[in-house]
Each structure stands twice: as structure tokens, then as C-alpha cells.
Design a protein around this nucleic acid. Structure first.
Lengths: 135, 135
DNA sequence: ATTTACTGATACTATAATAGTATCAGTAAA
DNA sequence: TTTACTGATACTATTATAGTATCAGTAAAT
């Protein structure tokens, strides 16, 4: 039951680092070192975060990344969506083909309920709440 | 957020078929046909269910499988454990190595809470409750 | 100007998990 | 003795996950 992949996990930790440094640019190198993450892997993750407007970057020496919105506006749910796709409805789908019992499937309905709970939990957890808890 | 793999999904459906047929032996062939599952794949799943004492088998012609306990004593949580391993604590572990921030990790604590909720939900859903809902 | 510290973009590889297939040996009812 | 079944196990295909490597460009510092 792996709820988070490494992508998501690293992304959250990177965003927490940026949140702590407030409005300063922090380089990928510095984040990777502090959080003990593989540098090139982290860089790709940061590129994704830029594409989804969660962070902005500054090129050149002294450049790096900083948050593009307040930590309270970045729910973990959104980060999961970026790196793991839609949280709901991935069950009972198989290779783009909807499972044969789609409409009637009891199991699917139960799973959906649980997924909805998980989503609502992850929506309430934000970079801000994680930051608060980690201090 | 794939909560169930095909193994688990097929296992649940197979157990539902057996629950419906009550105390009669049903062959893997018949289950596979009714539920539109790959036959050999299902057979391996049934072997696992035997190993974990959820079903018993009868060899030879007219043989097959039947439940080894009442449907209400088979929570979905147990089936998940059999095919997907322990539901909890799989997060923040990476290749048998515990993540560096193990003790202090805020994210891990939040995930654990959510996992516990998921587990408790899946414990309440049993073959009996699914059967009831499907009629 | 040129070195240095950085990002942008993208191609590549390794490993593990998931899903599915195939085969042979044995059992028991018809 | 054929037929319909299970037991056991080896094999393959596909996808997801994780991680690496490289080249081009930018901008501050010297």
C-alpha cells in the first residue's frame, strides 16, 4: 500500500526546504545535499514543479528555486496528482480498458469511498501544516 | 493510488463466487469463465488462498474449490495482506533501508495515520458485506 | 572576457513489481 | 482409460519506478 512514490516524497521534502527558506532562491544542489536526494533526479522533479507553477526558478550563479505560492496553498494531494496521476478511479481500470463489471461492481464502489477519504485527508495536509508540525 | 492489484481484485471476485455457491466445489475453470479472468493466473491465486487457509480444494473430476471459513470471517484487508504484503509501513522504506529521517519524519507520521484509516476500512469490508451489497 | 555556479531539456539505463502464460505430474469421478 | 480437475513451478511480457548522464544556455563573480 505505497501511498507515495519517491517522486512525491522528494517533491514534498524539497518544497518544505523552500518554504523554510521563505523567499530566497535555493539551488537544486543545496536541496539535494540537505535532504540527501539524488541530484539529477531532484532536478527533474523541480522541473515538474515549475511546469505546474508550484515553484519558480532563477538561472545562473546564485540562482535556484523558490515557492510560487504560499505553503498553505500547496496541498499534498496536488503533489500526488502531479507525480502519481489522478488519485481516484485508477482502480478497476486496466490498461485503459474499463473493467467488465464497471457499473455494477460492488468492490469498485467500496474502493471509491475509501479513495475519497484518502483524497480528503491529503487535501487537508499542506506544505504549511507539515512545516508547522516539523518545527 | 492503486489500492488493489489484479491479484487482490481477482481473489476477492473468486471468493465472492465461492461464497455464492455456498458449500459446493467450484472449479477454477468455471470461476475464470464466469468472472472473465485468465485461467492460469486465477489458479495461482487460488493456490495462495489455499496456502492461507481461506479455501480448500478437491482434486479430480468434479473437484474444485470452496470456502474454508464463513464469508463474514474474510475481511478484504486479509486478502490485501496476502497479495500485496503488509498494508502499513511500506511508505518511507526504500529497498529494505529505512529512510534517513525515519524517527523525526513528519510526512511519515501523517501517512501512517491515513494508512491506519485505510486498514480499518478494509477490515470492516468482508466477503459477506460485499456479497450482501451485490445482491 | 572567462570562469563558475547555476537551470532547461532530454535521452538513457537499471530494477522491481505486476500481470499473464505454459507445462508436467498427479488425482478421482465417470 | 478417458476426462475433468488440482499441485507445483518455470517462464515471459509489460509497465512503473528510480536513478544517471549529457549538452546547451544563463547570469553573477572574478
Amino acid at each position: 500500500m505505497k501511498l507515495l512514490t519517491k517522486h512525491t516524497d522528494y517533491a514534498i521534502r524539497a518544497l518544505l526546504v523552500l518554504a523554510k527558506k521563505n523567499n530566497l532562491f535555493v539551488s537544486a544542489r543545496a536541496i539535494a545535499k540537505e535532504q540527501n536526494m539524488p541530484y539529477q533526479f531532484l532536478r527533474r522533479i523541480l522541473q515538474m514543479l515549475i511546469k505546474h507553477k508550484l515553484v519558480v526558478s532563477k538561472e545562473g550563479g546564485g540562482g535556484g528555486f523558490k515557492l510560487n505560492k504560499p505553503p498553505k496553498s500547496i496541498p499534498v494531494e496536488q503533489i500526488i496528482e502531479i507525480f502519481q496521476g489522478n488519485v481516484q478511479f485508477s482502480e478497476c481500470m486496466f490498461r485503459k480498458k474499463i473493467c467488465c463489471n464497471h457499473a455494477a461492481c460492488v468492490i469498485r464502489k467500496q474502493i471509491q469511498k475509501i479513495e475519497q477519504i484518502v483524497v480528503s485527508k491529503f487535501t487537508k495536509i499542506t506544505i504549511a501544516t507539515l512545516l508547522r508540525d516539523s518545527i
